[in-house]
């Protein structure tokens, strides 16, 4: 009988131990899952803000890209129209080395053009000035000839392309007039400028010919 009671007691102790272990670990798991839930709530809030803030980005960036594409199309078309395909490719390749291989976006045939060495012979603005008719000797040099200047640093050869007056240093040009309170030549302000006229010319004429009709009637 005593052995039976002892076996029952051991069974009860074993069950209690299992239940205690279950309670302890399950409570710990519940605490951990609660922390996870709170963290996921913060994640959902942050992701919601991200979705809300990034919602118009696609539309705006698409609109900006469309506008920039339109600008690129217009400028490419204008450049090719005004400079011609060959010079246009040469200009772009001179500004951005290697760009001729890529060519223009709307002109696939531009990739087959051998770019002339425009940027090595003329300064960047010379061709534009020549198109505008401002004295640039656009035909003075042969693009097939040697390079006229050091494209990285030198400017003397480029300046010599211009007429003599444009080569002159600024100190050789007449000085600009000095104005202001410290100017060597001071001009006194005339008092009659800006002041009310003393007598109108019509009134002078009327006075010399007698009083006006309204005055005489009165």
């Amino acid at each position: 009988m005593l052995a039976l009671v002892a076996a029952g007691a051991v069974l009860i102790v074993a069950v209690v131990l299992i239940v205690v272990a279950l309670v302890l670990y399950l409570v710990s798991v519940i605490v951990a899952l609660t922390k996870i839930t709170r963290g996921l709530d913060e994640v959902i809030a942050g992701v919601g803000e991200i979705v809300q803030k990034s919602a118009p980005v696609n539309e705006i960036v698409t609109a900006i890209n469309q506008q920039l594409d339109a600008g690129v199309d217009a400028l490419e078309g204008l450049l090719v129209k005004k400079a011609g395909m060959e010079d246009a490719v040469g200009l772009v390749d001179g500004l951005y080395a290697g760009a001729a291989a890529v060519g223009f976006r709307n002109f696939p045939e531009s990739t087959t053009v051998t770019p002339p060495r425009i940027a090595e012979i003329y300064t960047k603005g010379t061709l534009t000035l020549a198109r505008l008719g401002r004295e640039a000797p656009i035909a003075a040099a042969n693009p097939a000839g040697p390079v006229l200047r050091n494209v990285e640093a030198g400017s003397l050869a480029a300046r010599q392309l211009y007429p003599d007056i444009r080569q002159a240093r600024p100190e050789h040009l007449p000085r600009s007039p000095v104005i202001g309170a410290d100017a060597p030549v001071q001009y006194e302000q005339r008092e009659d400028i800006g002041a009310p006229r003393k007598r109108l010319p019509s009134r002078i004429a009327a006075t010399s010919n007698g009083p006006p009709a309204s005055t005489r009637d009165a």
């Binding site: 272990a21 279950l22 670990y25 399950l26 710990s28 798991v29 951990a32 899952l33 922390k35 996870i36 963290g39 996921l40 913060e42 994640v43 809030a45 942050g46 992701v47 991200i50």
Partner: peptide, 22 residues
């Protein structure tokens, strides 16, 4: 039970880091 608890505890710092990143 210990395995479940360890896995649950290992998720907590990851979720907190994700919340900070979000």
């Amino acid at each position: 039970l210990r395995g479940v608890l360890d896995v649950a505890k290992s998720i907590v710092p990851s979720v907190q880091e994700i919340a900070v990143v979000a």
